[in-house]
């Protein structure tokens, strides 16, 4: 309150001004407004911090991990957590913490790839169906229905069985089975806006269908898709872990978290930490994505926005 008069215009005022002077300033201002809304949500900030730590962990894994994730020590197998092995060792005497740290790379790879492929397919199919209407809509939505009629994990299993086990194929299977809900969502959004006056106005300027779709409809669908993806991330991690658990995802000795739980399964009663530690990691990251998604909804969802 006391020192506001010292500067004629702080950076904050510049960002929050009602009358930005350049395109750049307007964009940054809108971004900053979103950031302020996001920051007000403490839990979402917690989620963001956890995810930043996860990314840092993945990048600096070789420096952070106390040991190689593959170094076996059969003399020191199934050791409980101790100062030497903070999270204990697994059945082959490998340091669980090192494996978790290296495993974060695999988790991020899975989540990132699925989150990049599935919503894009869904967005494209959903908006085209909603915007074109008629038989295009019918055909695309019936295909979507067929995909939705299968349990997702079973369908992914079938894909992996056909393509062969491995982390790449697991990701592909998850992406190919994950798009229908996004298509549904994008179509619903498209139906609510395709008859809006601003679409009619753009059409009257001579905008073609592709331009209407990409420049006018996509920007309004993307925000709800981003929220949905962030909330689905937890499910994607769990599905990937599930495939790993069933032995169809990452193959040994890859330190994939789901596969690590699977390895610990037989010792679960006597050596709980072997399965519990990767389980805890999956839980924390899933929770972080859910919190982040919640915060993003506050920022991006136009219905919840308080203008």
């Amino acid at each position: 309150m006391s020192d506001t008069s010292s500067k004629p215009q702080s950076r904050r005022d510049w960002l929050l001004t009602d009358a930005p002077l350049t395109r750049h300033q307007a964009r940054l201002g809108a971004f900053y407004q979103g950031w302020l809304t996001f920051r007000a949500n403490k839990l979402a900030m917690l989620g963001l911090i956890i995810l930043i730590l996860l990314i840092g962990m993945a990048i600096f894994a070789p420096w952070l991990a106390p040991q190689s994730p593959f170094a076996q020590n059969l003399a020191g197998r199934l050791q409980p957590p101790s100062p030497e092995h903070w999270l204990g060792t697994d059945a082959l005497g490998r340091d669980i913490m090192s494996r978790l740290i290296y495993g974060s790379r695999i988790t991020l790879f899975i989540v990132g790839t699925v989150a990049l492929i599935a919503p894009v397919i869904g967005l494209f199919i959903g908006t085209v169906a909603g915007f074109a209407g008629g038989w295009v809509d019918q055909v695309l939505m019936r295909i979507t229905d067929i995909f939705l009629a299968f349990p997702k994990l079973i369908l992914a299993l079938a894909f992996v069985a056909a393509l062969g086990p491995g982390i790449g194929n697991a990701v592909l299977a998850l992406a190919l089975t994950g798009w229908p809900p996004y298509a549904r969502l994008a179509r619903a959004e498209t139906l609510t806006i395709r008859n809006a006056d601003f679409i009619a106005a753009a059409r009257l300027q001579g905008a073609g269908r592709m331009r209407l779709l990409i420049r006018h409809i996509w920007p309004l669908c993307i925000s709800s898709l981003i929220v949905r993806v962030a909330l689905d991330m937890a499910g994607i991690i769990l599905s990937a872990a599930g495939l790993g658990f069933l032995g169809l995802g990452a193959q040994p000795p890859m330190p994939e978290w789901g596969a690590m739980i699977s390895d610990g399964r037989i010792y679960i009663l006597d050596f709980w930490w072997v399965a519990a530690m990767p389980g805890l990691a999956i839980f924390i990251v899933s929770l972080a994505f859910n919190l982040l998604g919640d915060g993003l909804r506050d920022v991006l969802d136009p219905k919840g926005a308080k203008q």
């Binding site: 006056d197 009619a200 106005a201």
Partner: peptide
């Protein structure tokens, strides 16, 4: 489109919510 243009009834619905005036 060059000859005829239209102004709509509801100014809250006729501008794209994510597009600036520019």
């Amino acid at each position: 489109y060059k000859t005829v243009q239209m102004v709509f009834q509801d100014p809250y619905a006729s501008l794209h919510p994510r597009h600036s005036v520019d």
